[in-house]
């Protein structure tokens, strides 16, 4: 339902969106600047993209970040989905409140605290049982999985809550085992949430500077850590070029994912409506024929 609102509100909305996009646009524009001075326009050039692709430090870090992102997002999807299923489908069980609290707490925890506490855990564990020996990509993966599984749990839980449980109940009534019901019925229905949960976890991992800085060791330098050390020394046109590439990839990815999910959702709603409409047609419904 839409309602007429005052014109000044549209101006405000436009100005607010401009505020959100001006910094990103300025990054993109000045990535094509030929001068080393990032903020003074000297002519169009793609030289910074060339030097970016020859910067091994940035490329190695980007590769490591993508690997860490993939593994931690995959782990987060599995664990986060388990939390969501337990909270949304298992009814009351002992320790439900604690699980709910534990799984949402990482969302509000300041990053410096999560980072510090995990590092102290890894040091204490190394002293006590010798594992993990030193900090590496492994410790970053554990840290990222821990905070991003909370986001996955929230996304999947809201999808499960909005889902009609009667299909699952019907399958259970017909004698399917709970595990089978989950994999054959629930999983396909929540797959859009799993995809967005994965993308969210991957983005959070790829973006994290603070927690990675705490739990990483020598040899495991992620992309945000490299960017941070460069940015601290001042503006760098290579970073602008990198930012432009990331904006382009993420922008394209989000738009494509949005369109695909929208289409899948529409198809699902159409199918459901057809299935419901089918009830009215006696020929399509063997039960009413009998």
């Amino acid at each position: 339902m839409s309602r007429r609102v005052h014109r000044s509100l549209w101006v405000w909305l436009g100005a607010g969106l401009a505020f959100l996009y001006i910094p990103i646009v300025s990054l993109v524009i000045f990535s094509f600047n030929s001068s080393k001075l990032v903020t003074v326009w000297a002519g169009f050039s793609t030289r910074w993209y060339g030097s970016l692709f020859h910067n091994d430090q940035i490329l190695d870090a980007a590769g490591l970040s993508v690997r860490i992102g993939f593994i931690s997002a995959a782990l987060a999807v599995v664990l986060g989905t388990m939390v969501a299923v337990a909270l949304a489908r298992f009814g009351a069980f002992g320790g439900r409140a604690l699980l709910s609290a534990l799984s949402t707490a990482p969302l509000v925890m300041p990053e410096v605290i999560t980072g510090l506490s995990l590092l102290l855990l890894f040091v204490a564990m190394e002293q006590a049982i010798g594992w993990p020996a030193g900090r590496s990509a492994m410790t970053i993966i554990i840290a990222h999985t821990t905070f991003s599984m909370a986001y996955v749990a929230v996304v999947v839980q809201s999808r499960l809550a909005g889902m009609d449980p009667s299909i699952e109940e019907a399958a259970l009534d017909l004698g399917a085992r709970p595990g089978k019901v989950f994999f054959v019925i629930t999983l396909p229905l929540i797959s859009p949430a799993l995809v967005s949960g994965f993308l969210l976890a991957f983005t959070l991992s790829l973006d994290d500077l603070v927690i990675s800085s705490f739990v990483s060791g020598p040899g495991a330098t992620t992309l945000p850590m490299v960017i941070y050390s460069k940015v601290r020394l001042g503006l760098s046109p290579e970073i602008n070029a990198l930012a432009t590439l990331m904006v382009a990839i993420v922008g394209a990815g989000v738009v494509i994912a949005g369109i695909l999910m929208n289409r899948a959702e529409k198809a699902r709603i159409r199918d459901e409506q057809m299935a419901l409409a089918g009830d009215d047609l006696p020929a399509a419904n063997p039960v009413s024929q009998a």
Binding site: L20, S26, T39, L206, I227, L242, V247, G251
Partner: peptide, 27 residues
């Protein structure tokens, strides 16, 4: 989507963009 999209691009790089905007010899 327009409101959410900036969230998907690197937080660090968006903060970095403000250095270029706010500097004494900035934009």
């Amino acid at each position: 989507m327009l409101v959410v999209l900036p969230f998907w691009t690197s937080f660090l790089l968006r903060v970095y963009a403000w250095i270029g905007l706010l500097n004494n010899n900035g934009i």
